[in-house]
Amino acid sequence: MGSSPLIIVAIDGGAASGKSSTSRLLADRFNLLHVDTGSFYRHITAELLRRGVPHADRPALLAALPGLKFSTRLEGRSARMLVDGQAAGDEIRDQRVNDHVSHYAAVPEVRQVLLGYQRGQTEVARQHGFRGLVMEGRDIGSVIFPDADFRFFLHADPAERAKRRAAEGRQDSVAERDRLDSSRKTSPLVVPAGAIDVDSTFLTLEQVVDKLAALIAPKLP
């Protein structure tokens, strides 16, 4: 008998909408590989800033991208991207990266260089015995896995999301991040057609997870 097909869960949403916490808990509940694509863009941003390659210098950026070699290391149930064999540190969450990540992510060639790597996480999940993967980001259900078994879009009131960021001790303009990500020409932040829209403003994390899990569970043997 062949192995069971992998289940793919796509979770999109703006900054501080609850994507990461929800995805991690779903990964734990169903033995799925957790893939945080936002950390990929943050890692690339930090690396290009370290190399002195500004997002507005298109020739320099296009010259630098082919030299970025991606691989994956597992940390528990989470996929950690390595660039040239190196994992990113806490710097990918600092203010400098916050201020620049949406600009680098808006460059079509940056998104293209990550496309195959992101889709390749299904093979990482398969090789390590996961039942599938849950991937979070801003274009997962619309671009990366438009045929995912489940596509969810999480959102919450901007004031509530700003409060969540502050509670984490992070200064992140969620409204500005959303504006930049929604207005870019390539793979903008959108609610994918047919995706299940979940408003988490007045829900606890556990309630959000239970809501999504109730839909996912019947699909798994």
Rank of each mutant, 00 (worst) to 15 (best):
K185Q: 08
S173D: 15
V174D: 15
A156K: 04
V143N: 12
L180Q: 15
P158K: 10
R164S: 03
F145P: 02
R184N: 02
A167V: 13
I140V: 09
K185E: 11
V174Y: 14
R151V: 02
A156N: 03
G169P: 10
D157I: 14
V174K: 14
R161A: 12
R179L: 12
V190W: 00
V190K: 02
R184Y: 02
L154P: 12
L180T: 10
A175W: 06
F145C: 03
P146Q: 02
S182P: 04
F153Y: 15
D139E: 02
A167D: 14
G169V: 11
G169Q: 10
L189R: 00
D157H: 15
E160H: 11
V143P: 08
G169Y: 07
R161D: 14
R151A: 01
D172W: 06
S142E: 03
A175P: 08
D139G: 01
R165Q: 03
A148R: 01
F145S: 02
K163N: 13
S182T: 07
G132N: 05
L154Q: 04
I144P: 00
A166N: 14
S182D: 05
L189N: 01
D157Q: 14
A175L: 07
A175F: 04
E168L: 09
G137P: 12
R165Y: 05
V174N: 15
F152K: 11
R138W: 08
G169D: 11
S173E: 08
S173T: 07
R177A: 11
H155Y: 15
F150D: 02
E160Q: 15
L154F: 14
E168R: 07
K163V: 13
F150N: 03
R161G: 09
K163T: 15
G141I: 14
R165V: 00
R177W: 08
A159E: 14
R138T: 05
A148V: 03
R151L: 01
P146E: 04
K163I: 05
D181W: 04
K185N: 06
I140M: 10
R165F: 01
A162D: 15
V190S: 01
D147N: 14
D178S: 03
F150I: 06
T186K: 01
M135D: 06
G132P: 04
D147S: 12
A162V: 13
G132S: 04
A166K: 15
G137K: 13
E168D: 11
V174Q: 13
G132E: 04
K185I: 07
E160D: 15
L133I: 08
P158C: 12
R179I: 09
G132F: 04
V143R: 15
F145K: 00
M135C: 13
A167K: 11
K163H: 13
E160P: 09
A175G: 07
E176I: 06
R177K: 12
R177S: 11
S142H: 06
D139S: 04
R138F: 07
R161M: 10
E168M: 09
L180G: 02
S187N: 02
